[in-house]
Write a protein that binds this DNA or RNA. Structure first.
Lengths: 204, 204
DNA sequence: GCCCCTTCGGACAGACCTGTCTGGCTAATC
DNA sequence: GATTAGCCAGACAGGTCTGTCCGAAGGGGC
């Protein structure tokens, strides 16, 4: 859709590095939002539970984020940065293009095995968000980044039709996350990696 | 997980065929729940909106379904029956095993193109439901049915390792639905079909 | 004609939600 | 020492949620 997207890491903003205390109110709120929104859903978790979990006053939340929607936005942004950072780190551990592409699916195995894994935060958020809102835009950004990553890796790996292979790889990527989450089965990552390898071989 | 599951259609219960009127209160409630829950999410849609949309009194809803959770359960059951019925019909249009398997992904193309398509209802419901509840059980049933269908089709198509191919096919099946929903791109079904075909060829 | 059952429309209770506001405390800066 | 800024704790308003209950209307079986 948006072919101008790249998978460069987004700018981290005005470099708010006051975080010397190891836990400012903003950081604690974001960590609590990340934990509770991700585990139970955005609509299900109220403001009160978040500020209680964070040990922060309600006024501080509204000073820092303006509204619940602002907190949701920051939550999704941190999810975006975390996942893209993890994928880029996994890819950059290799230099051979084929290995770099498969590294994405190897990273999935680690992600699925993490304790609180509950699937893709953007999919869950989009399921309970209104159409055309802030959540949908954040999800579009996230998916465009993944798509650009796959397109680039497919091209460097020598695929004859990189955009088409990227579409198929993203289908496998999405399906693996969904299967791992719905079936509580992290081992699906190995099947996904094998499927990706087979598709790569078939598209050279 | 549950290897005793089959993909036979579930019994339709005590055959409540009083539906001669073309729109009993129960049917109108179920239709409204199907429309509103699916379009906007379960937590987002309140009882009042459903009974207003259905033209039914609140007392009737609680007489018929007992609670909102009961209505959600019936909603997911009707989703289960609808989707499994559509897939079985698509598969049974062919006799050659390979064609029968690919028919699943051809059926997806039609489903994605339907007007109100918003992805998998069970995934959306699970994203906002508590762990271990009624919604999770319904989703597990649904996914076990799909898995059994793929395993059976893979076996009849001559795969050397039917359970493993079934896992990979379900990954593609899930990923296609998710991509179609998140990217508003029904054409992903053709990429998914091609990927399934490539995996099938690679597994003979 | 009478009974029984379902349904309707709406009031109501009790809980929870977001967002605002006040008042007191602490710590850094002038 | 005074001032300013940020944070905490909690009350509060206004709205929405699920679920219960009540009186009235309608329609089929005896």
């Amino acid at each position: 859709m948006n072919e101008t997207a790249t998978y460069e890491s987004r700018s981290t903003g005005p470099a708010r590095r006051e975080a010397g205390s190891g836990g400012s109110a903003r950081e604690r709120l974001l960590a609590s939002a990340n934990e509770l929104f991700y585990a139970e859903g955005i609509q299900t978790v109220g403001i009160d539970r978040i500020i209680e979990h964070a040990g922060v006053a309600k006024g501080s939340l509204y000073n820092l984020f303006g509204s619940k929607e602002g907190l949701v936005h920051a939550y999704l942004e941190s999810r975006h940065d975390g996942t893209t950072g993890r994928l880029m780190a996994a890819v950059d551990r290799y230099r051979v293009p084929r290995r770099r592409l498969l590294a994405v699916f190897e990273a999935q195995a680690l992600i699925f095995a993490q304790p609180g894994f509950r699937g893709c935060a953007f999919v869950a958020a989009a399921a309970e968000a209104p159409r055309g809102g802030l959540v949908e835009r954040a999800a579009d950004d996230y998916r465009a980044w993944i798509r650009a990553l796959f397109t680039d890796l497919a091209e460097q790996a020598g695929a004859t039709d990189p955009p088409e292979l990227a579409r198929q790889l993203q289908v496998i990527y999405d399906g693996a996350i969904l299967s791992a989450r719905m079936d509580h089965d992290p081992s699906i990552a190995t099947s996904a990696r094998a499927a990706a390898e087979a598709l790569l071989d078939a598209s050279l």
